[in-house]
Amino acid sequence: MLDPEIYKSDDEVAWCPGCYNFAILRAVKQALAELDIAPHQVMFSSGIGQAPKLPHYLKCNLFNGLHGRTLPVATGLKLANHALHVIAEGGDGDGYAEGGNHFVHAMRRNAGVTYLVHDNQIYGLTKGQTSPTSDLGFVTATTPYGSYNAPEHPLALAVACDCSFVARGFAGDAEHLAGLIARAIAHPGFALVDILQPCVTFNQVNTYQWYKQRVYQLGSDHDPADRAAAFVKAMEWGDRIPVGVIYTNDRPPLESLLPQLAKGPLIDQDIDGGAREDLLARFR
């Protein structure tokens, strides 16, 4: 196990005091340390929002791209260099609204990318608008009469897409969350961790207390390999909200299906250039 302090970055933190992103930051550091991943061996791909600032506060490689586009960038990084640990990170708006299409297809593709979604059921950076995971009737600046749209259940969508690792964590329990993140990183295919994150500034409904009263840890009676049971757990939302590993399967990661990558990462294969007589012959 490495010392979590080696991931400390000098960048000045721009989150609200008391933000649960600090707990997620701690959990990420702990997971990386537990897995002995050195800062240069991991690359984050993050979007835009409060959540995707997290990797700036870590000493690690980062591509901080556009709102909603974390997963395509992460896929490109992973396919070009599958020796890197690639972690995509963003908010619920970033991943489930702006990037919703990518989310579905990243799960189908199953490249070895870990996806951490800070799900505060609100848009934080833009100061409080409704999100795809906001509950019905949720009042925000853009939905003054309450949200009319049925909330998305990201984990149920993930199980439906046969995502190869589906988990939910709670930022109020950083220790448990760190364990989930470590398992997600160690998982060979695409791994989703949806993280319940109280937003202390803009979400006065889904507070720490709100989550605390509902969240319970899945026990050994839940078999993550049972897809039907996983679907039931993924849909459970209300008085009780399960956290833990909801679903896993052993679909091979995309990288393992590509013979081009058998010799090693794409980037390590020589760029020779020059005329290719074998290819030109077909034009004769």
Binding site: S45, P72, T75, L79, A80, N101, H102, Q260, R276
Partner: peptide, 27 residues
């Protein structure tokens, strides 16, 4: 040819961002 990978993206937004990811990685 070896060392070449073609991925059909879900849309052009994904296509350009994937290519950006691969380029950042050094490809």
């Amino acid at each position: 040819v070896g060392g070449l990978l073609v991925e059909q993206a879900e849309d052009e937004i994904a296509a350009v961002n994937m290519a950006i990811g691969a380029a950042v990685a050094g490809a």
